[in-house]
Design a protein around this nucleic acid. Structure first.
Lengths: 341, 341
DNA sequence: TTTCATGGGTGAAACGTTTCGCTCTATGTA
DNA sequence: TACATAGAGCGAAACGTTTCACCCATGAAA
């Protein structure tokens, strides 16, 4: 049904090779160039990327696998990734793993079948096994946000530990000692942030009761329930660290439903930059991640690897030096922290 | 580098046709089936979808074009779409138009080149021209959220006009007569909602001053500035209708920065279901869209069209009856509306 | 015994490009 | 004048599948 290069050949009398040359930006007589353009217009010709991909065995497409597409963090990163990839002439093929490792593995295989030139992955699984097929095929991968323990994997992430440390420090510097933590340990970023928090508490010799440590998954539900529990305690905390966006959401909901006010009754600091948080009253103090920069670096790194692969710089054993890029998160001001004592 | 069907042939001694039959679920002697499976395991064989697509001229891939991927509305819809498509054995190829009609047109052409079997589009452009190439190639398209004036286009949307009507009615029923509207008219959904609002005001014979009508684009900025202006008026409104998610965001930010309280000083009702809105205090009364249902219907409709195409039910002139599916949005309770007077 | 259907298998053509190695012409140089 | 050189164009092979038409046993029905 759709026009092919062969139709153009018939219409112009030129050979397939010449037309292909035109399509890929080669030199032609102006006269022939004209003819081809005319034919393309007449026939509404569009290159069949499947055929092209079959012979070039590259698709100018990057696979992007995300743990949860419905989440604002992901959406924003996807936007930036798309922007930078497009600038470089690549398109993104996005797959959502819905926080399910099984789906994640399927996504990776699917993209492999689609012959993507590289992948950017924000993983669900903690184990790098699901990337084995990708590595075996020498398809470059860059992880984002969440590193995996495999020496062959590049990663772009944020200094979670240090940023969380600074966040809790800010609470301590405001005189708080009854500090509670609502965070997750199901995901590496959560673990790192937790470590940062605990390190500061240790450094400042701040002891907190077990009941102040609310460690679970990074869900709205966990944030909501944890905050409810904290507010019911006889010795309520005076400040709370909220480990990620979903937790913030849940916790603020619970707080809003309670009679307590922020920051009069409770100071808050949260982790994750999302414009949405402006909705809360008062405006939250937030640890913000440089999402745009992260996307930019991920694309840059991936394209570098693809280039290295093509030029055979790829070491025989596939073991080039992997890069772990750690970008700094910063604390953005707000009004959710009150001086204590 | 990667293994092909030919390697399997060499390893098993079977013919290409037989192996292909296996891959596509045909009948084989158990013995041969065994052999092939063994070979696939040994060689880490994966089907090359480009080659397959080239000959079948279908990709089992659906192109999804969205106006803005960073937005929660979009993210949620994408999640549901992905879920339903996957269930039916299709994958999604997602393109972000970043609210730019030029990018949108490029996206459509790109997906066409990728030979997607169909498209789901949440359009930026008001003019259906950019879909011409798709229609010409007889690729089915289903629009979501925003219909376009073209009799060949199916669409799944929400009853914006009626829902907005009911929303303002709720304000009126609480005794409000000084009702302001912050909405957009740059997008069809905004226009419909605005019409609904105005219709109710007319039916109830409520006259509002020009300064209560804040019509602009659907951006955080417009919501923010409009709310600031409303709060500065000598005769402040007692209730405000907020036309979409971004406007809610901006307006609530402005209100939070002001000395005024919701709902004591100002009642609010907003349009768009997003869990995020729970963050606001008090909880907003919202018009919620049945996003999951919309995604489900869009997929169902698209797959029906694809099927019709294959079975040649596609009328010669490409003019089958198009469907506009209008789903009901509902009002969800909250505490942001006070009785007035 | 003949006929016929059936199930498992095969070889080769097709899909729509790119690319390799070649030819031809025109131009500039020795 | 002879000769190299470069530019433009060409034919054919390749990419990795699916699918069409056909073949050969086997076994049941006539």
């Amino acid at each position: 049904m759709a026009a092919t290069i062969r139709d153009i050949k018939n219409m112009t009398g030129l050979s397939l090779a010449t037309i292909s040359k035109y399509l890929n930006g080669g030199n032609l007589l102006p006269e022939n160039r004209e003819k081809i353009e005319e034919a393309i217009r007449m026939l509404h010709y569009e290159v069949n990327e499947m055929a092209r991909g079959l012979v070039t065995s590259q698709s100018k497409t990057i696979g992007v696998v995300v743990f949860d597409i419905s989440n604002v963090f992901t959406g924003t990163v996807l936007q930036y990734l798309g922007e930078y990839l497009r600038e470089e002439g690549y398109a993104a093929m996005i797959c959502d793993s819905q926080n399910d490792p099984v789906l994640e593995e399927q996504n990776v295989r699917f993209l492999l079948g689609k012959k993507v030139d590289g992948m950017i992955v924000m993983p669900v699984a903690q184990d790098p096994g699901f990337l084995e097929p990708v590595l075996r095929n020498h398809i470059p991968v860059v992880l984002m946000d969440r590193p995996l323990k495999d020496s062959r994997l590049d990663c772009v992430k944020v200094n979670n530990r240090e940023a969380a440390y600074d966040a809790v420090k800010l609470l301590a510097d405001h005189g708080h000692r009854r500090i509670a933590l609502i965070s997750s340990d199901t995901v590496i970023t959560g673990q790192e942030r937790l470590e940062g928090c605990l390190q500061l508490l240790k450094d400042r010799k701040i002891r907190i009761p077990r009941s102040y440590m609310k460690v679970g998954d990074h869900s709205i539900g966990h944030g909501y329930r944890s905050m409810q529990e904290l507010l019911k305690l006889k010795e309520r905390p005076t400040a709370v660290f909220l480990g990620n966006f979903e937790i913030i959401l849940g916790a603020v909901m619970a707080l809003n439903e309670s009679p307590y006010q922020c920051p009069e009754d409770l100071s808050l600091i949260g982790f994750d930059d999302l414009i949405i948080s402006n909705l809360s009253k008062p405006k939250l103090v937030l640890v913000v991640q440089p999402l745009r920069k992260m996307a930019e670096e991920a694309v840059r790194l991936l394209l570098k690897r693809i280039d290295q692969n093509r030029n055979g710089t790829d070491k025989e054993d596939g073991q080039y030096e992997h890069e772990i890029l750690v970008l700094p998160a910063k604390i953005a001001e707000g009004k959710s922290i009150a001086r204590c004592g």
